[in-house]
């Protein structure tokens, strides 16, 4: 009797198994809610954003630009108007609003280049960086202090006071040389050039004295 009952239940076993599988498959429909969870975890994002690793100093950037390092791309996230008035050499303009436009993603999400984001300050550049970091884009950096810092350190470096250390003076001279590279002209630079021109002028005239012919003294 018992055997018969078991046999009856066992006859349905495939149907039962199939029903359970279908139920579980139905459960998968509920899962895509988590797929909205685009990008890395918020906790991870927070720790990434708090670390200052992404910042690049203006001195380092000046060094890169002067050496014309081909592995860097500069991206200006300010609006078109500011971009037109001044930007760093060879920078590409991607205004913050257009950060995720089709054309811009190819610059941001790649493995070939290091990308340096910058704006007037590092506020907008940071925002761009945070959003990109959430999507897992690698090789992105932010110019610390942005264009304002670039101006005060590289374009218009402050001359150190006399009681400051030698390294400050060294830094000043490198920055000054860098600013000359980026188009700033100093009065003393011109002064240094002019004497060179002057020096050429007075040629020494070496007059070769011809040997006087021995006067033909009276013969006969």
């Amino acid at each position: 009797m018992v055997k018969k009952k078991i046999a009856k239940v066992l006859a349905f076993r495939y149907k039962i198994l199939a029903a359970i599988l279908i139920l579980l498959a139905g459960g998968l429909v509920l899962l895509p809610k988590y797929q909205k969870h685009e990008g890395i975890k918020p906790e991870e994002l927070l720790s990434n954003t708090i670390s200052p690793e992404r910042y690049m100093t203006t001195d380092r950037l000046a060094h890169i630009l002067i050496n014309q390092d081909p592995s860097f791309i500069l991206i200006d996230v300010r609006d078109e108007k500011s971009f037109a008035s001044y930007t760093l050499p060879n920078a590409i303009n991607i205004p913050l609003q257009k950060l995720f436009d089709e054309g811009s993603v190819s610059y941001l999400n790649q493995n070939q280049y290091d990308v340096v984001l910058f704006s007037n300050d590092n506020f907008y550049a940071d925002q761009a960086w945070i959003l990109c970091n959430r999507l897992g884009y690698k090789h992105l950096r932010v110019l610390k202090g942005g264009i304002n810092e670039w101006f005060t350190t590289i374009i218009n470096p402050v001359k150190p006071a006399e009681n400051m250390s030698a390294s400050d003076f060294e830094l000043y001279t490198t920055r000054k040389a860098a600013s000359m590279f980026f188009g700033v002209v100093y009065p003393e630079q011109v002064k240094a050039e002019t004497p060179k021109v002057v020096k050429v002028a007075p040629k020494k005239v070496i007059t070769i004295e011809k040997k006087k012919k021995a006067p033909a003294e009276g013969g006969c």
Binding site: R78, S82, S85, Y86, S119, N120, D121, F123, Y124, I147, N148, W150, F151, T152, I155, N156, F182, G183, V184, V185, Y186, P187, Q189, V190, K191, T194
Partner: peptide, 23 residues
């Protein structure tokens, strides 16, 4: 936030002008 503190282009142009007048 994000205030442009200096007009870099103007500064560079001025430095060039100054230098040339000095010259």
């Amino acid at each position: 936030i994000e205030k442009s503190e200096a007009d870099v282009t103007a500064f560079i142009n001025e430095s060039v002008n100054k230098a040339t007048t000095a010259e």
